[in-house]
Amino acid sequence: MCLNGWGGKLHEELLPYLSNEAPEILCLQEVIHSPTTEKDWLTYRDGDHVLPQRANLFRDVSQALQDHQAVFCPAAQGVLWDGDQSIPSQWGLATFVHRALPIIGQVQGFVHKDYSPVGYGDHPRSRSAHGVRVYDYAADRSVSVAHMHGLRDLNGKMDTPERAEQARKLLELSRQVSAPGDLNVICGDFNVEPDGETLAILAEAGFSELVTGRGFDSTRNSQYKKPGKFADYMLIDQEEAVRSFEVIYDPEISDHCPLVLRL
């Protein structure tokens, strides 16, 4: 499963869903980790953009998926707000792998900029990525999965040199964690349109894109009020290995839809 968790804004819907579904591998973007506070909720402020944030979403999801190994990959540390008090808070993505799947390799890195230790920074901000390689005993094969949260450009989701570069870096990270003969999956909230350069770069490398490729017309739901209905993608380099692929519109657990791939 691949999902942008929206900072845990729909926490009451999100955690029961994840606990019930318990995907063997969960690639989760927009994850908050605030280790110095026990507060449940804080506020993100960026000009007119004000958003409630689940202060320790990484902890919350880890508790919901207690049979999983959890890895948090921060992109930056800035501040969230408890009223007028600023709270140090790390922002990034996380990967959760069921303990029945041995992790035999992993790689963590950046697809845009580097770790920002003193503030989230100016847009487009630092973006991290993570890849895991697991052994699937049921299918007698290794599977490598890499994901990122693509950079947000205030001007929109159009092609830019920075987005092309992050696609190449994500592809390189996928290649670093995998080995010849692996089944390879790349996913994430890419923040690009389906006809853009990012997916073309991945297609040229042999990956098939499953969202539009399987006829889904959106990866957003009614929580998302802006134009443009695509952000999230799932790609695989051996499409014959796909047993099923779904974009989940109900229940709504974020303003992004979960992408669920069964091999």
Rank of each mutant, 00 (worst) to 15 (best):
D195Y: 11
K39P: 07
Q176A: 09
E21G: 01
H123W: 08
G131E: 04
D84T: 13
G206T: 02
K225D: 12
D67R: 10
E240T: 13
A55V: 11
F58Q: 14
I32T: 14
C257M: 07
L14A: 10
I236N: 00
A129S: 08
L199P: 04
L15T: 08
D189H: 05
P194F: 11
L28Q: 11
K9D: 05
F72Q: 10
Y44I: 03
L263K: 04
C187Y: 07
G206Y: 05
Y137P: 00
P74S: 10
Y249G: 06
D67I: 03
G228K: 12
D82Q: 15
V143K: 04
Q77S: 13
L28R: 06
F207I: 01
L259A: 05
G92I: 07
P52K: 12
A94V: 06
V118Y: 13
Y44Q: 12
G83Y: 07
D237F: 14
S208V: 08
R163F: 11
I103G: 02
S218D: 09
E239S: 09
T43N: 00
V242I: 11
E252F: 06
G150Y: 03
R168P: 01
S144I: 00
D237A: 09
T43E: 01
G83C: 09
Y137A: 14
R243G: 06
K9E: 09
R214G: 02
E204M: 03
Q223D: 06
V134A: 03
P23R: 06
Q85I: 01
I201T: 04
P16A: 08
S208C: 12
L263S: 03
S254K: 15
S222V: 14
L183M: 02
E193C: 09
D195G: 12
T36K: 12
I201Y: 02
A203T: 09
V31I: 14
Y17F: 15
G228F: 09
C257H: 06
L151S: 09
A179Q: 10
G7I: 13
A205C: 05
L42D: 14
L42N: 15
I25H: 08
M234T: 14
W41E: 13
V247F: 05
E240F: 10
D159G: 06
R214C: 13
Q29D: 06
F58I: 15
D136W: 00
W6Y: 12
G213V: 07
A203N: 10
L210K: 01
T198K: 06
G7M: 12
P117C: 05
V247P: 04
R262D: 03
L51I: 11
E38F: 10
Q29I: 02
Y135F: 15
S86D: 07
F230T: 08
P16S: 06
H130L: 10
P52E: 11
E197S: 06
P227A: 15
D153T: 08
E30F: 04
